[in-house]
Computed example of a mutant assay.
Amino acid sequence: MIGDAFVVDAVTHAYNLHPSNYRAGRYAESLAQLIFGLHTGFSGDGYRIEQPERFLKDWSVKELARILFVESDIDLAVHHVLPLQTLYSDGLCSLEKTLEIRKLYPDRFLVYAGVDPLRGTAALEELEQQVEALKPSGLKLYPAAWLGESFRHTGWRMDDPTIAFPLFERARKLGIKNIAVHKGLPMGAVPLEPYKVDDIGGAADAFPELNFEIVHGGMAFLDETGMQLSLFPNVYVNLEVTGALIVKRERWFAEALAGLLKWAGPSKIMWGSGTVFCHPQPAIQKFWNDFQLPDDLVSVAGMQVTPEVKRMILGENYARYAGIDIAAAKARIAHDAFSKERANGKPGPYSFREESHGH
């Protein structure tokens, strides 16, 4: 917690960015370098890893957990299986790591399955297998994949009745209610079209009993994203990467947040750090302790970001979205190993040592 705010990080990744994991040559390297560039560009002093070889590695789940629950004020987090097997041998965040997270930290993590809809019936079968193994709280999707020997960047739409709708129908039958899709942030030097948000409404309308979570909400297509929030009760925004802007690009963050608040108020905006893309603590700390909308943006948003609004964004909204009982969650983690270690004071960033830290 930070102050009296219970913090849920709605998206985290134990990336495998090591070059030995690359399958698609320059495309895999380009995306890895983009992630590293976002890290160096948006991380504050003392929280930035300068050496590429220290960042472009295979991050362990224990390292991720320590960053989240000892080095920062996060209480619960969501880890996504990433289905980028055409780029990375393990998809970038593997099913195996997510299974390990499930086993080691059941009280600290929720998990999302992840499949590539362009795989057709194979994606449906894979989803069934992941649901059986993981008991996930949601499904993570990317709007494009790199196909064939030439690794052609190929997009698909969330409102496509042939590609998307069979997957949503299967998710519904399997008990998955929350569908998160990467939007607003192209994965390297690729066509922009798949990352637009104009396809969300068709999915939300066709599947009103499912929730659709726009990941990277507000990074681009701000008014279009806000309009989706206002029109459809089952559309939400996840601030992965967007939230990190507050550390070094505060005006950009403020404009994005004001634009989302303008359309639909605070109740559908959820915090996400994207750790390990960057360390989560500086953004959370600045948002809770220091952030206010400038007066000109208060007039845009129609409100100020009060402590009540901050509590909603940092954790209460996601708890409601995912059916988390905050009081029960607090009780489960109150005396675990992470809470005990954090009670002694937060260590410096990236302090994990495999030989000295076991859970």
Rank of each mutant, 00 (worst) to 15 (best):
L110V: 07
R152T: 15
R48F: 04
P266R: 00
Y195Q: 06
V70N: 04
Q228I: 07
G243M: 12
G323Q: 03
E341H: 00
E126C: 05
A180K: 04
E100K: 06
R172A: 08
D90H: 05
D4Y: 01
V247H: 00
P136F: 02
G201C: 02
G201W: 04
D198P: 01
L239V: 06
I326K: 08
P347C: 01
L134R: 08
R26M: 04
V300C: 05
P117A: 00
A244N: 11
F352Y: 15
G274H: 04
S339I: 12
L104G: 00
P208Q: 00
Y105C: 03
Y88A: 02
P307H: 02
G120V: 10
P19T: 13
P208G: 01
S20V: 13
K103V: 11
V131T: 07
I200C: 03
N21F: 08
N234R: 01
Y142W: 14
M312F: 00
A329P: 10
G184M: 04
D205R: 15
L95Q: 10
E193C: 01
D159A: 08
K140M: 15
L229Q: 03
E29A: 15
D223M: 07
M158W: 12
R320G: 09
L56T: 12
E100C: 07
A133H: 02
L141R: 08
N211C: 02
E50T: 12
R249N: 12
T86R: 00
S150Q: 13
D160P: 14
L231D: 13
V7M: 05
W271Y: 15
Y195T: 07
Y47C: 07
P166Q: 00
A144G: 12
D205T: 08
T40G: 07
L174V: 10
A5P: 14
I101G: 07
V181S: 09
N16T: 09
R170D: 12
K97G: 09
G265Q: 04
A10S: 15
R332Y: 06
F55M: 07
